[in-house]
């Protein structure tokens, strides 16, 4: 009976961890994606300084959040996003139009990372 109770608790804990990590990832990716979209909009209307400041904030936010994301996501998915976000700051500072492509690439990586964690049929199979 004791074993059954322990196992039931383990199953509940595992499902709770899985669900909360999914919610955390969803929230994190949505925040970073919306900030990247804002960066692109600010850059397109010529507000370079504000876009650089926002890029700095986004990078710092991602660095903080990625410490938790790292607990449940493979490093090979996190590292490219971190390095691309660092590149965005530089591209904005040097006023390079490649910043749009870089932001889109990061957005795609974040969406792909999120989608891989949501149990669809194509993920499971």
């Amino acid at each position: 009976m004791k074993r059954l109770i322990i196992c039931s608790c383990i199953i509940v804990a595992a499902l709770t961890i899985a669900l909360s990590s999914l919610l955390h990832l969803n929230r994190t990716t949505n925040e970073i994606v919306s900030q990247l979209t804002q960066i692109k909009n600010l850059y397109s209307v010529g507000r370079i300084e504000e876009s650089v400041k926002l890029a700095e904030e986004t990078f710092n936010k991602w660095e903080k959040k990625s410490k938790v994301v790292h607990i449940y996501i493979d490093d090979n998915q996190i590292i490219p996003i971190t390095s691309s976000l660092a590149k965005v700051k530089l591209l904005l500072a040097t006023d390079t139009p490649e910043v749009y492509a870089e932001c889109d690439s990061i957005i795609e990586m974040l969406i792909a990372m999120k989608d891989m964690q949501i149990p669809h049929l194509h993920n499971i199979l």
Partner: peptide, 8 residues
Amino acid sequence: FVVSIEVI
């Protein structure tokens, strides 16, 4: 998870 399923 797998071990718990097995016990159950």
